[in-house]
């Protein structure tokens, strides 16, 4: 009796040792997850859950009051693709994104170069460039809306005084002009972020590279296109991608200035989505538009990354 007791105890003891070792190894393997756990959880709650919710909503039938009436299959999507204005809106959105991002990046490159140069008062200029970023986008858009007003707008006032115009122009009522003005406002609010990212990029380029170029007799243009621009690629890449996403999803500028009107003539997919939910009272179809919008952003960013061969940057 005693004998067996000892034996089993011994067996247990020998069994415990490796188990403890695997336990420790498992614990060690789990430690990183403990550390990244809260962040992962945060991302899951704040990022993934809304995406799931969005896709779920796009498959539901939701009454005009807001009550969920059950599954709607893919009807929301077929309704969305039946909208006569959808194609125009998507094309306009792509033009809007391309136009705003390209102009922003070109101006930001110049601005960043200026901010990187040494001159008296540089600190003040750097602060001044940040201002449009610090101001609320909605406020900026509203200020521009009033500046472009047909009756009281300062833009008309100045152009009339300079005899450029003979009578006031209702800038925001004509779709093409309105679109150009809104793109300008979008560029204006995108500049600070892009130019500061590029400025940071400029500051990472070591001085020795420039010195070597100078010794080799490279001119200003050549130095810029052969050294500065290639070495700025990581910064440009980041600035452009974030800008694409921001501009694509930009709602306040267009909503404050034209509400996407007249009709749907200045709508992008984001304002169109809002109108489907709150004018057409169709939350389900609006969610379908949101899913399409989400997919469009993903595809655009992937295409851009592919075109710019981002893997070389990572390596």
């Amino acid at each position: 009796m005693q004998d067996t007791d000892v034996r089993t105890r011994g067996a247990r003891a020998t069994a415990r040792a490796p188990r403890a070792r695997t336990g420790r190894r498992l614990g060690q393997a789990l430690i990183p997850y403990v550390w990244i756990g809260p962040a992962t959880l945060l991302i899951a709650v704040v990022v993934l859950w809304p995406v799931v919710e969005m896709i779920r909503t796009s498959l539901q039938k939701i009454s005009s009051s807001g009550v969920t009436l059950g599954s709607n299959g893919t009807t929301n999507y077929s309704d969305l693709f039946d909208e006569g204005d959808l194609v125009h809106v998507v094309v306009r959105t792509l033009l809007w994104v391309a136009g705003v991002v390209i102009v922003t990046m070109v101006i930001s490159l110049a601005l960043a170069q200026l901010l990187n140069a040494r001159f008296p008062g540089r600190r003040v200029v750097r602060w001044a460039v940040i201002v449009p970023w610090a101001a609320s986008v909605l406020m900026t858009a509203l200020v521009w809306k009033w500046m472009l007003d047909n009756y009281f707008g300062v833009v008309n006032e100045v152009l009339l005084d300079l005899h450029v115009l003979h009578k006031p122009v209702n800038w925001l009522a004509h779709p093409d002009q309105a679109m150009l003005w809104m793109m300008w406002v979008a560029v204006f609010v995108s500049l600070p972020f892009a130019s500061f990212v590029i400025l940071a990029g400029l500051q990472t380029i070591p001085g020795e590279v420039y010195e070597a170029a100078r010794v080799d007799g490279s001119g200003t243009f050549r130095t810029y296109f052969r050294i500065t621009l290639p070495m700025l690629r990581p910064a440009l890449l980041i600035a452009a991608i974030i800008n694409v996403i921001n501009v694509f999803n930009s709602f306040p500028i267009i909503w404050a200035m034209t509400q996407g009107g007249p009709g749907h003539a200045t709508d992008t997919t984001t304002t169109f989505m809002y109108k489907i939910a709150f004018f057409d009272q169709n939350v389900g179809e609006s969610a379908a538009m949101a899913v399409v919008n989400f997919a469009l952003v993903l595809v655009m960013v992937l295409l851009y990354l592919r075109a710019s061969r981002w893997r070389e940057e990572v390596r």
């Binding site: 005009s64 009107g261 009709g263 749907h264 109108k275 709150f278 004018f279 057409d280 009272q281 169709n282």
Partner: peptide, 10 residues
């Protein structure tokens, strides 16, 4: 409300 919304838009 959906009809009024369509009227407002177009």
């Amino acid at each position: 409300s959906a009809v009024a919304g369509a009227v407002k838009q177009s």
